[in-house]
Simulated scan of single mutants.
Amino acid sequence: MFDTEKMHHAYCIEGKKEAVLPELLNMLEKKLKFATTGNPDFHLEEFQSLGIDESRVIKAMSQYMSFSGTKKIFVIAASFINKEAQNSLLKIFEEPTEGCHFFLILPTSQILLPTLRSRMEVVRMMKGEAEDGRRYAAGSAEEFVRADIPERLRMAGRVAEIEDKRAVIDFIADMEACLRGRMDSKSSDVSKKAEAIAEVLKMKRYLFDRGASAKMILEYLALVV
């Protein structure tokens, strides 16, 4: 997963928590010889949405020296992190406490602010059907934009069926990039494309709402891009 001899102070591991967490804990135990049970220097936190209050607690805990005098490790699994929490974490990663390492498990690093992501080493974990699904989604965004509405709706259904939510997030991000690439100041429909990009950005935010339906979001985009 990463070089245990030259550990970075912060990692973003993209993948499903259920798949990533056991492998990460096993790696810490077996390769790093770092106990993940009964160890005051190990912290595991899980959130649906990580907010500013939780990030402040994490920041405070990270500033204390480790009990062992060697390493302190934080594993944080979340589906989403709001902007305020990310800015709080950014301050930790800009001036990390010596011997303190963070492992952030997220569905995709694209939900991170560029400033925060640039201070982390991104690791992708995809296996089997999830990897196949993501490859399909990654190669379909431009085709989706070019297609007529019935074909877009068919494609929306197929992408929405991919269990890895990261694939849907990346598909929408690729759609945005495709639309931006088609922007031409001399084009007569530049304002229409700008409106489509605005809708994509709005739907990308909605995707992280609790109970959000990827299928409904993609079907809406099929009608407006």
Rank of each mutant, 00 (worst) to 15 (best):
D3Q: 07
D3W: 05
E5K: 14
E5W: 07
K6S: 14
H9V: 11
Y11W: 09
G15F: 10
K16T: 15
L21P: 10
P22Y: 06
L24P: 08
L25N: 11
L28T: 08
L32H: 07
F34I: 13
A35D: 14
T37G: 08
F42V: 08
H43G: 06
H43I: 14
E45I: 05
S49M: 09
G51N: 12
I52R: 06
I52Q: 03
D53F: 04
E54Y: 01
R56N: 08
V57F: 09
K59S: 11
A60E: 15
Q63Y: 10
F67D: 12
S68G: 15
K71L: 15
I76P: 01
I81W: 05
A85T: 04
S88Y: 00
L89S: 02
E95V: 06
T97K: 14
G99Y: 06
H101R: 04
S109D: 09
I111N: 01
I111G: 00
L112V: 03
L112G: 01
P114A: 05
P114R: 11
T115P: 05
E121Y: 06
M125G: 02
M126V: 12
K127V: 13
G128R: 01
G128L: 04
R135F: 10
S140A: 14
E143A: 13
A147H: 05
D148S: 12
L153P: 02
R154H: 11
G157P: 07
E161W: 03
E161H: 07
D170H: 09
D174Q: 13
A177R: 15
C178E: 07
C178P: 00
L179Q: 03
M183C: 10
D184Y: 07
D184S: 15
S187R: 10
V190T: 10
V190W: 11
K193D: 10
I197Y: 06
I197P: 08
A198P: 01
M203K: 13
R205D: 06
F208H: 05
M216A: 00
I217A: 00
Y220T: 08
L221Y: 03
A222I: 05
L223T: 12
